[in-house]
Write a protein that binds this DNA or RNA. Structure first.
Lengths: 206, 206
DNA sequence: CTATGTGAATTTATTCACAGCA
DNA sequence: TGCTGTGAATAAATTCACATAG
C-alpha cells in the first residue's frame, strides 16, 4: 500500500461492507472474493478492492478474502473494536423508536443516557434507561459519552448540540431538519428522512 | 443555460435548498443572494449558483433570487407541485414513528396505506389509517400509490419490495439494513441509520 | 489459472474567475 | 457596484487493465 488520501466515499462504504459480511457469514464459506462480496452488495468488484486497498492489503491473490479476518480489520479501522456510549436527546416518536433500534448494539453502540425537556417524561424509564432533564446534559462530562444523537424539534436543535459539545461530546448524529453549526473538530452526520423521501418523485418518469 | 447532464449530487442538494428557503422565509426578505442562502445552509455560494444553473436561470444579476419564486421552481423540478401518496410496510417502532413524522406532509406526502403481517395490528387504526394485511399489497394497483416505505425486518425486505413493485410502486425508501434488488426503472433510496452512526468513531481522534 | 492490489485513464463533481446584466 | 450564470481549471472518485502473488 502506497500513501493515499482516503476518499470520504470509501469511508462511507466501509460500514456497508461490514454489514454485508456480518449478515452473509452464516451461508458463506470461510473465504470470499471481491466479486462475490460486490454482487451481494450491489457494487463493483474493483470498487471493493480499491476501497480495501486504501487501508491495507487484506486479501490473498488467487484466493480472496478471509471473511472473519476481514470483519476484524474493518471493525478496527472503524474503531468498532471497542464499544461506544451514546446520549440521545429528545424522546419523541422518532427518539423512542431509536432507543429500541436493535442494529445499534450489533455494532457495539449503547445508548447510555437519554434526555428530554418534558417533565412528564423525565424520571420515566425507557428501554432500561431513566430519562433525565436536558439541563443535566453537562453531567455527561463525567460519563465517557462521546456520541450524541439529536432527535429534538429544530427550534432547539442548535442549543442541544451546543450543550452536547460543552459536555465533551465529539460527534453528532442529527435527525433535526436543520444544519448544525459545530466546531471543526466535531463530526456531524445529518439524517433528514424527509430529504430522502422528497427526491423520489424527481426520479419517477411520469 | 446550455445542455448539461445534471449531477446526482445537485439533485441531492436541491431538497436541502428548498428546506432552507421554507424554514427561513419568515425572517428573510423577499430576495436572497446566493451568498446568504449558502451561509444559512453551510455551503458555498458558487455551489448554490451552479446547482441552480443546471435547471435554469432563476436569479437576477445584481439582485439575487426571489424567494417565493425560487421555492416554486425547486418544487416544480422535484415534482412537489403535486401531492404524492405513499404506502408504508411494517408498523414496528420505526414504522410507527414515521407514520406521525410531521415533515412528510410539509412537502406534500401522504401515507395513504399501511401494511403489516401481525394479526394483532391488522385492522387497527394508526395515525388515521387502518393497517392492512401485507397480502393485500397488490390492491395498491388501483389506488395510485407510487411510493413505498419499507420498515420491515431484513428477512422479508426483498419480498416486500417485490410485492410493492408488482403493485405498481415506482420508488422505494428502504429502512431495512440490506440492499434491495430492483428493476432499473425503479428508484431505491436506502437509509440505514446504523450505517451513519457506525462511521462516527472513525472521525473521532482519540 | 484465479483473484488481488494499484498505477493510469476516465469520468464526475467542485471551485474558480470573470463576462455581462441590473 | 453587486450578484448571477457559466466556461475553464482543478480536484475527487470511479473504472480500467494488468503486473504480480498464490
Amino acid at each position: 500500500m502506497r500513501y493515499h488520501k482516503i476518499p470520504d466515499e470509501a469511508v462511507r462504504r466501509l460500514p456497508l461492507y461490514l454489514r454485508g459480511l456480518l449478515f452473509s457469514s452464516q451461508d458463506l464459506p470461510e473465504k470470499i472474493s471481491s466479486r462475490k462480496l460486490a454482487d451481494f452488495l450491489g457494487v463493483n468488484p474493483w470498487q471493493v478492492r480499491k476501497d480495501f486497498s486504501y487501508f491495507g492489503e487484506f486479501g490473498t491473490p488467487g484466493v480472496g478474502y478471509n471473511v472473519e479476518k476481514l470483519i476484524k480489520q474493518i471493525k478496527k479501522i472503524l474503531k468498532l473494536n471497542v464499544s461506544h456510549k451514546a446520549a440521545l436527546v429528545g424522546v419523541g416518536n422518532l427518539g423512542a423508536a431509536l432507543l429500541t433500534y436493535p442494529e445499534f448494539k450489533i455494532y457495539g453502540f449503547d445508548i447510555a443516557a437519554v434526555f428530554d425537556n418534558n417533565p412528564k417524561k423525565i424520571g420515566k424509564k425507557m428501554a432500561n434507561v431513566v430519562v433525565e432533564d436536558v439541563s443535566n446534559i453537562g453531567l455527561l462530562k463525567k460519563r465517557d459519552v462521546k456520541i450524541g444523537i439529536i432527535t429534538v424539534p429544530k427550534s432547539v436543535a442548535q442549543e442541544t448540540a451546543d450543550a452536547l459539545f460543552n459536555a465533551g461530546v465529539r460527534s453528532i448524529l442529527n435527525f433535526s431538519p436543520c444544519s448544525i453549526k459545530a466546531p471543526k473538530k466535531i463530526k456531524v452526520v445529518n439524517i433528514d428522512i424527509a430529504m430522502d423521501l422528497v427526491r423520489l418523485p424527481y426520479y419517477m418518469t411520469s
